[in-house]
Design a protein around this nucleic acid. Structure first.
Length: 866
RNA sequence: GCCCGGGUGGUGGAAUGGUAGACACUGGGGACUUAAAAUCCCUUGGCCGCAAGGCCGUGCGGGUUCAAGUCCCGCCCCGGGCACCA
């Protein structure tokens, strides 16, 4: 049933059809279907307290258009929505007010859902998921356990931001300009126990996998740079004073080995103490101390000047036996390569700068290839490749050949090895927070761990990694045991206080009853420490891991859960995974170009490797919608007061106008400013569509539209052109031009005296993905059964596009002087003749000689004359 | 510093190497109305001209081409990412 209104009243029409879709489950996806599947994924939102932002509907409208288009083309469509609901704000609110984050989250989710529904998105709400629901995070924990089992998890001391005033670990985003975001207190780097995932084991796979993906090039490039693969060699330099000790360095330029005039090791390098001679000890120690106090920021950004200290030691260059000094300097990072380099100031920016500062020798060993070089020798440092000079019997070789040969020759002597290095670091996976997924591990003593290993028929043993995960817990070395899948989910315990512990541990560490447990070494069962029934010798004392997972965890695999959201036996059933495979398109912000999109790829590759999934890459086609700026052209923010609330826009203009406007603003990927004034244009367009089809006196279809009416050729041509353009533009995500073509079409309809009902229906179908509410209403009033989104998509008739005449542009010297309409059959000679006699062309040819005549068939004639 | 992306009317933006400014917003003029809103019509890159028409015009400077917003070279500006990764 349509609504009663005769005028275009979005406030009546929109809720009406939203209810219709909900009642009829119009947009539910089928997990068994003969039809081809289409899966469109939105980046699910963090349900913040401030509600939906005008930026959210941009990407969501785009996928909504695609989905409605695919339904009309007969696909079985999966279009789900959910909540990435763990995270800091709810926890901070809890600390301030004592409100349980679960409660805050529930309220925020309800608000978000209500707001999203008002915009009329075709989500399958039966598949809604929430990362904070135990039914969901059970499987997040399950995936972690698989990683634990496969040796991809370990525990290590890692530097984190620590604020001594707040007595809390801060996330990167909570540190602004070297101060805590809250209160502006000083922060420092402090080493704390962290659970780490070995993403570096997947560096090569993650890099290679990028190749086949239909992603924005910039995003692929960013991931490539982030992974940062570089090929080179590790080379041993014998230390002069300690002939038994070798200093191993990494270089990508073994061809410049003859130009190494000094060595640099990181201040944290384990050999520093041994190398350092007596007379340099104090200075070196002082330098180390100073370096340890510097944050990463000081070591990079602010450090414009290089600093360093001579250790007094010398190394022997393995290619020529030259004795060169060893320095320590903080421009060499302990965390990359071997933490030591050979310095080649002639061919490296940084080494050059350092050498200049400390007056170290600079020896040039590579020259640009002759054809590339100018007459004189290049300015130093020259970091390009070229031809070797001053390199004994390698002189004259190209850089590439020399690299190979030098490494091969040194390798024979056992002092070099070709290696590959990555910038990618392992993923610090723990957070010292309450509101996250508890990490399913407990810690036991070494003897108890060994008993677990020796226990036959043990469920636990099957889940232990090849190499034990150990850590100092409560001051002693402990061993990690998993909380087995059959005991998941490991629920977050209730607590009164969400305050950080004050020692840098999670608030969970303060909940003693939860923390101290017993684990059964056979079954892996866990009970409270004081449970009297756990009295057999299989039960041993344990403490729980108190860190929780980062917010990224839940978003690493949510695209899989949507396929099978209610499965309690598996994260995703094999049948559901077979049907849906991976999203056909993933739309979301470019701010996730690296972290989320890399972490999710890592998990997906891993799950593929252990046989849970049928393919390694999660997101085959990715698209980033641009940011919508405030009316002032600035980024929207509360403090600037330029935030637009979608609820207000829906109330004032309607959801269809909002959807249209966000798509009409400009290319989907572009950054563009909002204008509440311009949205009026969309309201006008929709009213125009309404009044073109509906008689606002009676509310019925206008008399000019009828089954017997004939659509004139010009109108038919524009309609079919519109079918073609809109179809192609939707597939290419060019929604702004699709909408302008729809405007051209309705403008033509207005001029037509009458046209056939099926043509009006075609137009309504084309507009429906963009403005579904008004189109459902018009579709039904035109005499059809809802839903328009399920009606077969119109096809264009090429014969309607054919014209018997064509427009030819006449130019003289490339300047357009006239445009004429001629028969399609016209010959080249005739048209050239016509052009020469054209009254608008003639004056420009008078007194000139035509040097050349150009005819582009069907397009133009150009005379070159002088 | 390095790597990307982008500079087109008053504004958002269109333009397979072939009529630059589609489609909108704003502004101006008009119709309807007691009036306003809504709606409709005309107009809206700059300069010259009564007009017909002409000249100029896609950040700047060169180049390729019969023809350049589009391709090439060198700059300038804006946005994003990375930032001692050897």
């Amino acid at each position: 049933m349509p609504t009663e209104c005769s005028d275009y009243l979005p406030a009546e029409i929109e809720p009406h059809w939203q209810n219709f879709w909900e009642r009829n489950q119009t947009f539910s996806a089928e997990n068994s279907s003969e039809k081809a599947k289409y899966y469109a994924l939105d980046m699910f939102p963090y349900p913040s307290g401030s509600g939906l932002h005008i930026g959210h509907p941009e990407g969501y409208t785009a996928t909504d258009i695609l989905c409605r288009f695919k339904w009309a083309n007969g696909f079985n469509v999966l279009h789900p929505m959910g909540w990435d609901a763990f995270g800091l704000p709810a926890e901070q609110y809890a600390i301030k007010t004592g409100t349980h984050p679960a409660l805050t989250t529930r309220q925020n989710v309800e608000n978000f859902r209500k707001q999203i529904k008002k915009i009329g998105f075709a989500y399958d709400w039966e598949r809604e998921i929430n990362t904070t629901s135990p039914d969901y995070y059970k499987w997040t924990q399950w995936i972690f356990l698989q990683m634990f089992k496969h040796g991809l998890a370990y525990v290590d001391e890692k530097p984190v931001w620590w604020c001594d005033t707040l007595k809390a670990v801060l996330a990167n985003e909570e540190v602004v300009d070297g101060k805590s975001e809250v209160g502006g207190h000083p922060v420092e780097r402090r080493n704390l126990r962290q659970v780490v995932l070995r993403i570096t084991a997947y560096a090569e796979k993650l890099l290679n996998g990028l190749e086949g993906l239909d992603w924005p090039d910039s995003t692929k490039r960013m991931q490539t740079a982030w992974i940062g693969r570089s090929e080179g060699a590790e080379i041993d330099f014998v230390i002069d004073q300690h002939p038994d000790e070798k200093l191993r360095i990494f270089t990508t330029r073994p061809d410049t080995l003859f130009g190494a005039t000094y060595m640099v090791i990181a201040p944290e390098h384990p050999l520093v103490e041994k190398l350092c001679t007596e007379d340099h000890k104090d200075a070196v120690k002082a330098y180390q101390d100073a370096a340890s106090k510097k944050s990463d920021l000081d070591r990079t950004d602010l450090a414009k000047e290089k600093s360093g200290e001579f250790t007094g030691a010398y190394a022997i260059n393995p290619v020529n036996g030259t004795r060169i000094p060893i320095w320590i300097a903080d421009y060499v990072l302990i965390s990359y390569g071997t933490g030591a380099i050979m310095a080649v100031p002639a061919h490296d920016e940084r080494d050059f700068e350092f050498a200049e500062q400390f007056s170290l020798p600079i020896t040039s060993v590579v020259e640009p290839k002759p054809q590339k070089s100018t007459a004189d020798s290049p300015r130093l440092p020259y970091s390009g490749k070229g031809i070797l000079i001053n390199s004994e019997n390698y002189t004259g070789l190209s850089s590439d050949d020399a690299k190979q040969k030098i490494v091969a020759d040194l390798a024979q002597k056992g002092s070099a090895e070709a290696t590959v290095n990555f910038k990618l670091r392992d993923w610090i996976f723990s957070r010292q927070r309450y509101w996250g997924e508890p990490i399913p591990m407990v810690w036991v003593s070494r003897p108890d761990f060994e008993r677990a290993l020796d226990t036959h028929d043990s469920d636990l043993k099957a889940y232990l990694p090849g190499e034990a995960v150990t850590s100092i817990v409560d001051g002693e070395l402990k061993y990690a045991l998993p909380v087995l899948p059959q005991h998941l989910p490991l629920n977050l315990p209730e607590t009164e206080s969400y305050q950080p512990s004050g020692t840098g541990e999670s608030p969970l560490a303060t909940i003693d009853s939860w923390l101290r447990v017993k684990i059964n070494l056979k079954t892996g069962a866990i009970c409270a420490a004081n449970d009297p029934s756990a009295n057999s010798p299989d039960w041993v004392s344990a403490v729980r891991e108190t860190n929780t997972m980062p917010q990224w965890a839940g978003s690493c695999w949510y695209h899989l859960r949507y396929m099978d959201p209610k499965n309690s036996d598996a994260m995703v059933g094999p049948k559901a995974e077979q049907i849906w495979q991976t999203p056909d398109i993933y739309i979301g912000g470019a701010e996730h170009a690296v972290l989320h999109l890399l972490y999710a790829r890592f998990w997906h590759h891993f799950l593929f490797d252990i046989g849970v999934l049928s393919q390694p890459e999660p997101y085959k086609r990715l698209f980033h919608q641009g940011i919508i700026l405030g009316e002032d052209g600035q980024k929207m923010s509360k403090s600037r007061g330029n935030v637009v609330n979608p609820d207000d826009i829906v109330r004032d203009f309607g959801a269809d106008a909002l959807r249209l406007y966000e798509m009409f603003l400009g290319p989907l990927e572009a950054m563009k400013p909002w204008s509440t004034q311009s949205i009026q244009g969309m309201v006008r367009f929709l009213k125009k569509v309404w009044t073109e089809i509906i008689d606002t006196e009676t509310g019925r279809v206008k008399a000019k539209i009828s089954d017997s009416a004939r659509t004139d050729p010009e109108t038919a041509k524009i309609l079919h052109q519109t079918i073609k353009t809109v179809t192609e533009d939707i597939e290419g995500l060019r929604f702004n031009t699709a909408i302008s073509q729809l405007m051209v079409c309705i403008n033509r309809f207005q001029k037509a005296e009458g046209y056939a009902t099926p043509d009006a229906e075609r137009f309504v179908q084309l507009l429906a993905p963009f403005a579904p509410h008004i189109c459902e209403e018009l579709w039904e009033r035109l005499g059809n059964q809802p839903s328009v989104s399920k009606a077969k998509w119109p096809e264009f008739d090429p014969s309607k596009l054919v014209e018997d005449s064509m427009k030819i542009v006449f130019q003289v010297n490339g300047k357009t002087r006239n445009v004429v309409s001629v028969s399609k059959e016209i010959t080249k000679d005739t048209i050239l003749d016509m052009a020469k006699k054209d009254p608008k062309i003639l004056p420009h040819l008078s007194g000139q000689t035509i040097r050349r005549e150009i005819y582009v068939p069907g397009k133009l004639v150009n005379f070159v004359a002088n």
